[in-house]
Each structure stands twice: as C-alpha cells, then as structure tokens.
Design a binder for these strands. Structure first.
Lengths: 206, 206
DNA sequence: TCATTGTGCTACGATACCGTAGCGTACTTG
DNA sequence: CAAGTACGCTACGGTATCGTAGCACAATGA
C-alpha cells in the first residue's frame, strides 16, 4: 500500500514533468534556491571537499531529507553547483583589436580578483584530475572563459590586424597564462600595470 | 609505573636526539621510508584529501601505531610528504640567454608532463587557500621553480642581453604562465613546438 | 474542502576516518 | 647476552560522513 513512490514505469518521455503541470511549486523553488545558495557558499569557502550534505542542511535551514529529494546523491548537488559557477562572457567589440583585448583582459583580471569562481577553481582542477564528470565541468568553464578571446583574435585575423598564420591557442595561452599564474601560483597582485603589460607585450610583436 | 613515556622534561635542546646517539636505527629508517613512499604514492594518485593514515598503513605494510610514532598527527605526515615533492633546479649556464632559456623551459615542460609534483599541485594550491602551513609549502615550491628563471634573467640583464628596465617577475609570468596554463587549464599537449614558441616570442621582443 | 505533494524531524545503519592504549615480540646495540 | 627500543596487532572511543525510513504537519491546487 505504500506505492505512491516515483512509479518509474512511464512510457512517455516527459509526461508528468512538473515543469509542465506545475510551472513552479513555490515550496520546491524555495528549497532548491536555499540549498543551492548554501552550497555555493560552502564551495567558495572550503572547496569541493568542504561541502557536506549535513552542513548544507544546517546552513540553508532545509532538512537533509529534503535535499536528498531534489539531488539523489551528494555528487549531483556538487556538480550542479559547479555548473552554476561560470558565466558566459560576451566578446567586446570596440572597433580595434587593442581595445577588445584591453577590455577582455581587464574583465578577466577583475574576475580573478573577486569572483566566487576564482576561489573554487583549484579545487575543481584537482578533482577534475580524477573525476570525469568534474573534468567535463572544468573544460566547459575553461571553454567559456577562452571563447571571447577566440572571437576577438579570429576577428583580428580576419581584419588583418593579426597575421593569418597566428596561432590562436598559443596566443590565448600567452594572455591567460600569466594572469592565472599570478592569481594562483605566484600570488602577486594582479594590478592594472601587470595586466596592461601583458597585452602590451603581446600586441607589441605584430 | 607506566612511565617510560617520552619524559618531556629535558633541559637540553637536542640531548638524546637519536641522530646523535644512534645515527640510524635501521628499523626506524625502514619504517619511515616505507611510510613516506606510500604517502607520496597516495598523494599523487588521489591528492591531499586522498591520504588517510589507515590507507597509508595498508599500503606501506607499516602499522598505523608506528606511523603515529613518527608523525604526531596526520597533517604532519602530509606536510612532510609535500615538502619532499619539490626539487631544486640548477640554473643552466649555456653561455647565452637564449640557450639558458631553452634549456630551462624544456626542463620545466618535461617536469610538467611527468613529475609527481605536477599531479599534486592543484591539490596543494587548493589547500593553500585555507591552510597556512600548506600555503608556506606552496610558496616554497613556487619559489624553487621560479628561482632558476630569476637567475638567468638577472644574468642576462647584467650582461646586456636584456635591457636594464626588464621586469623580471613579469617575464617569468610570461614564461611559466603559458606552460602552467596548458598543463592544468586548457589541457592541450605541452609539445616542443608550443614550448619553443613561448621562448621565441619572449625573446623576439628584445 | 479535500486529496496531493513537499517539508521537517528524529532516528537509524553503515562507513571511514582520527588518534590512543596495552601487550607481546623482534631487532639493535653496548 | 641483556637492556633498550621499535614494531605489529587488536581493540577501542569519538566524530563526521552518506543515505534512508517513517511519521506528522503544512502548503497547494482542483
């Protein structure tokens, strides 16, 4: 008689998906939001390893059982949270390659200094070394961050601002590499002078 | 009556230090070596979080109690292992800055491709974000890896191969940044062409 | 209003850890 | 050979996890 469980035998693909019958049950939305907020908080504070379901429950005020109702296992929760860390950047279009580059590098440096993502990244990279799912997340984030560079460099090649034989990936490494190096390895300040110097040197060799 | 414990009341600084009375008790040496080997193994396989004393005991064949006899707490063991990860590099002296740079960059790329250190680094960086002791270890390793660059660049400035106003730290970022970027972020291959390209571009602007 | 659905709560069982105690045995060294 | 020392082993106590079960209560929506 206790058979009001998921009842997995549904021929239809998305038949009773609540997103159709009930666009949003306010209670579900609320729980999910609270849980995700607490998870992201823990994630940035303590890295991947610092996120336990019990602690998320404590911080969010949402019961642990409720959390498990929305994410079947811990890893699903973490993966979900990591996925929401990154944000797409639009490629700037200032009219000149130098302008685009300056804008993009400045934005990236700003992100590295302040964004939640920056403090979680080492943890993700570490986990990605062994967890295929997180490796996927990492490469998606990585792609999102390099894509705008790809765009403006390709455009510059097209317009003749850069020579046709330009190695796009190598140039991206020359731009992002030093930024990342300062943020996570040498831990020296990421000031405007440094950022400007990078772009200057890369531009200087055209 | 159970008082054959450490007996901490010793006025002398190093009085009964076994390194004096007993240069090496073979048993101690053996235990420590086995434990350290297993720890390094686990470290490279699973990162910092993957090292548990129980697992080290299993793998090394050394009893857990013995491990605790040599390292008072888990963190001491891990810290010790991390400390042994890095190795100093001698700065090459080929006679030319270009030669030195090529040698150094080639060696570094080789390290990044193969060394145990490379697979643990993300883990250390992550932990360093919150653990001061590991932050110290990380900055020591970081320093060891950048020091030879510092040497050859300074030498080149002294000899006139590089202009006197050269920003040494920025140049190191331009060299190591792209290498690290490829290894841990974009995960593209670290082939000779790429490495050569970096040095070429840095040298090209003198 | 009434059935449905989501939540909170308490209580579990199962692991995996950390770090310690006590005891018997083997090795090392004087 | 004898004393000191290191070691292995078993067994703990304590904590933090993960993930689940069962039940009562509240919100929702037909």
């Amino acid at each position: 008689m206790t058979e009001r469980k998921p009842v997995l035998n549904r021929p239809e693909h998305e038949a009773k998906s609540p997103s159709r019958t009930t666009p949003e049950d306010g209670r579900v939305r609320r729980s999910k939001d609270l849980v995700m907020a607490a998870t992201l908080e823990l994630l940035t504070e303590n890295g991947l390893g610092g996120v336990s379901v019990d602690e998320v429950a404590r911080r969010s005020g949402v019961a642990k059982t409720t959390i498990y109702r929305h994410w079947p296992v811990r890893s699903a929760l973490i993966l979900d949270a990591c996925t929401r860390l990154s944000s797409q950047h639009a490629a700037p279009d200032t009219g000149s390659f130098a302008g685009d580059l300056a804008a993009l590098m400045g934005g990236m440096a700003q992100l590295l200094r302040t964004a939640r993502w920056a403090s979680v990244t080492p943890s993700i990279i570490d986990a990605a070394e062994r967890d295929p799912d997180l490796a996927t997340v990492h490469s998606r984030i990585q792609l999102e961050h390099s894509a705008p560079f790809q765009v403006i460099i390709s455009r510059a090649v097209g317009s003749g601002d850069l020579p046709p034989q330009t190695d796009v990936q190598a140039m991206i490494a020359d731009l992002l590499g030093p930024l990342y190096y300062r943020r996570w390895f040498s831990r020296e300040p990421l000031d405007d002078a440094f950022v400007g110097g990078i772009t200057e040197r890369v531009l200087g060799r055209t």
